[in-house]
Design a protein around this nucleic acid. Structure first.
Lengths: 242, 242
DNA sequence: CAGTGGTCTAGACCACGTG
DNA sequence: ACGTGGTCTAGACCACTGC
């Protein structure tokens, strides 16, 4: 970076390069799946060595923001349904096979955010949300009741969509330029109340797994709050630690 | 490595260095918390450049097998109770504070492994296990009923221990040289049966979170199968994805 | 002060994918 | 054949730690 801004650098060079590239990705400077300039090109443009660019790109690759392919180049991650399910849908049958859910037709509404939504999505007191309600099925049997809340200021016209795909995060990237990069999931055990029992075709009082997910974009903004009430038979939620 | 074995190298150099260092750690070549040789020393000893050693050590640090401290050196990870809870106990109160459990006096027995234990711990058909049963408390209130199974061939004399600490993994490292580095946790919702209801002081039929953990050592061998039945009030299991 | 890991550079060569 | 990222090297300087 020519002569790095007078003195106040503080963070290492490769961090600054990472930041610069991150901002360009987020600004849509390169389209989803599109190639970044080569390492030597970025190095000369930014006035640093290729090794420094490499370290920055490796960090972005580890954060799943970019993918590197030897002999081809470095590309902005392009979410696909398979990719999204693989990374974010952590329910496996007890014999170890990942369960790939389908979705029924969702109900999409727009409303003032309630207290929970304001908290989880860091909205203003008068913020608005889009709510999606749907049931997910496996082998045509319902097993998850989902309620999804999205901030209206980002996903404004989503309430007007006629159809929604089974996986949303690839859709978010294509239509809103929002790349979901990480999420927190909070898991508890609850019992089915009347509404869930009806939706899932089970008896009231059946134990369910409740998963509260908050998903974050590149800038670490909370972009989705999703509550999944899961009726798991011979299946489980899988977390890998370490 | 002087002249790398004629031709059959296949894996990159830094991977081979990582492997070599990993084996020394596992063999107890350096004690828990003990320093490894400096980067230049390892580089000359192994006949590779310092940059290659660095890349191998960085990988070991990322896997929590080694910790690097600028100005001090590189050290074998030394498990501590705080460290173990921080990494492996993922229950948080709903206001976001991690819950730090205590333990009641455990019951320790030795037995032939049952079918589940044989499967989860990859034991021979006639393998033996040590079983630990205990209840964990928070603010003196019981909230987790734990059943832990360990392979006897590794933890042979554990059944004879009079006292067991609250956190086991630091104990495993000190007394058996076994460093737990990662784990899979399978989470489901169940209802309390008579035994759990009695242990946790709750009504039969209360929904519980069941966590099946399989913990792995450096060589990726399964060293523990732990079932935790958790009665969570205003608390949850937290998983971070991404 | 000497020694450690952390950053940064420059350049060589390799493995891969495409034309 | 060419350009890409992947590996490996060598050496400089910085930041931190402990004596």
């Amino acid at each position: 970076m020519a002569r790095r801004s007078p003195k106040i650098d503080a963070r290492p060079l490769y961090e600054q390069v990472r930041e610069a590239l991150l901002q360009r990705v987020q600004a849509g400077h390169w389209p989803p799946g599109g190639p970044l300039p080569s390492e030597p090109a970025l190095a000369t443009e930014l006035g640093v060595s290729q090794g420094t660019v490499r370290k920055a790109l490796d960090a972005l690759a580890q954060a799943h923001i970019v993918v590197r392919r030897q002999g081809r180049g470095t590309f902005v991650v392009e979410q696909t349904p398979a990719h999204v399910l693989f990374r974010f849908f952590n329910i496996f049958s007890d014999d170890g096979v990942q369960i790939l859910p389908d979705s029924t037709k969702p109900r999409v509404t727009r409303a003032r955010a309630n207290a929970h939504e304001i908290k989880h999505l860091a909205l203003a007191a008068d913020g608005e949300v889009v709510r999606i309600n749907r049931v997910r099925t496996h082998d045509s049997a319902p097993f998850v009741a989902e309620t999804i809340s999205l901030p209206c200021d980002v996903f404004s016209d989503l309430a007007k969509c006629a159809e929604l795909p089974n996986t949303l995060y690839d859709f978010f990237q294509r239509h809103y330029g929002q790349l979901i990069v990480c999420a927190d999931e909070r898991v508890t055990a609850v019992v089915a109340r009347a509404r869930e029992a009806r939706l899932l075709g089970i008896a009231k009082g059946t134990p369910l797994l409740r998963i509260d997910r908050i998903a974050f974009g590149i800038d670490e903004r909370a972009l989705e709050w999703r509550v999944s009430l899961c009726h798991l038979t011979a299946a489980h939620y899988l977390a890998r630690l370490g």
